[in-house]
Design a protein around this nucleic acid. Structure first.
Lengths: 207, 207, 207, 207
DNA sequence: TATGAATGAGTCTTCATTCAT
DNA sequence: CATGAATGAAGACTCATTCAT
């Protein structure tokens, strides 16, 4: 039956997620997943092509969302915000940016943990690094655009610094996840984070 | 013979380091290490108790140094610097702190990479997390002490922020390592980093 | 329904034939057959007892015809031809013989390929060998009969030679199949073949 | 120790040969080989890279010899024989050719059986077909050369006939192997074979 | 000390067949 | 008749470690 099948598929995925989170991709045996899901090992292969496919299945919703976030940076709304940021020094942009990621954490806490810490050995083991690089590229592009409009803007000593700050945003998120912060705690932490980044960047840009 | 024995031990360790760096702990086979060292697989067990012991042996110098750095925070010199920071707002302390870690990178680049990215599956896979937590505890203690001396100091919204900044220092280092920056590049990056942190903290503490 | 049922049975058989031809018996998975036939894997078991039964079903028409050909050698017509061959040295017999097999190729090219090259692992993997042996036995009987009627006939040095020529006929056919000769090419090849065999045997029998 | 190791290697190879001969490549399990050789399954991998490598190891001597036979066709001696054949119609050439293959049977009976009937699923499953094609190419070249020297020579109706005769030589050998003929029987069979071929070709070439 | 050989548990994956519906 | 789900046995191969010498 269709419903039953989907039920088992999710049972397997849930068991897999639990074991992957606990042991990491490599150390997880299909056997463990099967036991956790209460199915035979070989039956898993009726639902997924293999261990890697199973892992991807679990984190796909997260990946889809992250990639859509990257794409969004090119739409109209983004350019409006950019103007406001460039003219008024509004932190709306950064705020909205980080809010999106916070929502991401809320929706995909486990998946983020999987892809950031537990993916070694899977085909997604470099996903975060690649994603970070892509984000860095966008930030750099953003800053260059800004510089064109405000030629007297102070600059950072090396472009690598942009990279660092992108990475920081991810380690920021990753620590929130790792320590399982409550929404209230998250909010406070984010305020500190945004304030810190905002002040820092304004200082640099105004010399 | 003692001399010869030590020679072989180092040969094995060198080969192991190379393979661990390339493949990570779990994916590394004793076979590969043996081949790299030009010895038989079983001979490795005359020098090390097993794969894990071998890994620990390689990163031990780094660990020793890192732990000594943590302990140093309690010595006399540190308290003098602390006074100077507390009274004059000198960044000497932070500067010296980060310089120590930069030196650490210089001396133990490979070992840092091993312990930060390639330790999954070994008994040291949580070392960095534990170390970071210890550092955070120190920073928190530091700030509380400072607060006692300067009661009107502005505070961070949550202590977790201290943790974040400790982590950031490590991801900062880790990115330097990952991207194999030259000393010149490192210097520039560090300047950006210190400036950013300094401004940020001063802002918070002065409201 | 009876009609519908037969339709599905043939669909399955057709798909199976295609996959068996491509991959051989052992490497063929029931899954592939089911997919090719557009039915569920388990439904195949409503029509066939299993993989082996399915394979036998496909080649049965060929087997039936081959076995009828062997039996025919004992009928009246055959004995008339034999007389003509024995008295006049007519090649009508050999010609008709080979023509029958050529027709077999035309009607059962795929099935022949299956049973000659793709049956390993099935219960019919020895069919061709057994059949060849049976044919040899007939040729030997034929020659002994001839020898009785024409005592001065030259002989072959070993009866094994008869076996060889039977085998050759099959490898002749099998190569025609393997290289997918067109009817025109087949005709030329057969002429060469019959001429060669005819000359050879006449030479032996006339010393 | 070196001797002991080689001893085990040959033990494994011997057991493997026996099982491969009995069951064929695909149906043979490493387990069976290990049991036959009296070693653990995994120990086989200390001597061979895998099942396929093990199979190749067994038939390599045969392959080497067969390939050297193909190469020989281009040396001086061959051209002398060719002249004698072309001028005098001597069957020395064919005789020597077939004698070489008979010797091959004597030396590599099992290996030939393996590569002709039991290689399905291994990387050598097409070796015989490829080899046959190469031989055919040589025969065709030979005949074209002969035709140049004797323009009035009668020809075969299709070049495919050459291919057939090459195949026949192999099925000839293969039947000798399959039926485990004694040397005495082999000799007689070969005489029949050579006589048959010689007469047949002479007839064709003289019209 | 050093080695090659051996082991045994463990890995993922495949597949013909059966079962419940 | 048809199906998707489930099974269980088997398969090739890996690898850290131990053993005998």
């Amino acid at each position: 039956m269709q419903t039953k099948k989907e039920h088992v598929r999710e049972q397997i995925a849930a068991a897999a997620k639990e074991v992957f989170l606990r042991k990491g991709f490599m150390k997880t045996a299909m056997h463990d997943i099967a036991k956790g899901a209460g199915v035979g090992v070989s039956n898993i292969y009726n639902y997924f092509e293999g261990k890697d496919d199973l892992f991807r299945y679990i984190v796909t919703p997260l990946i889809v969302e992250m990639e859509s976030m990257v794409r969004e940076h090119h739409n109209v709304r983004y350019h409006e915000q950019f103007q406001r940021y460039a003219c008024d020094g509004s932190d709306e942009m950064m705020m909205e940016h980080i809010q999106k990621y916070i929502k991401l954490i809320g929706n995909h806490q486990d998946e983020l943990k999987l892809i950031m810490y537990k993916a070694q050995g899977s085909s997604l083991e470099n996903f975060i690094d690649d994603y970070t690089d892509e984000c860095t590229r966008q930030v750099v592009a953003f800053m260059e655009e800004y510089k064109k409009q405000h030629p007297q803007t102070g600059m950072v000593r090396t472009q690598f610094t942009y990279h660092i700050h992108t990475v920081w945003m991810f380690s920021f998120m990753s620590e929130i996840i790792k320590h399982r912060l409550t929404p209230a705690e998250i909010e406070k932490t984010v305020e500190d984070y945004v304030q810190f980044e905002f002040i820092g960047w304004r200082n640099i840009m105004n010399h």
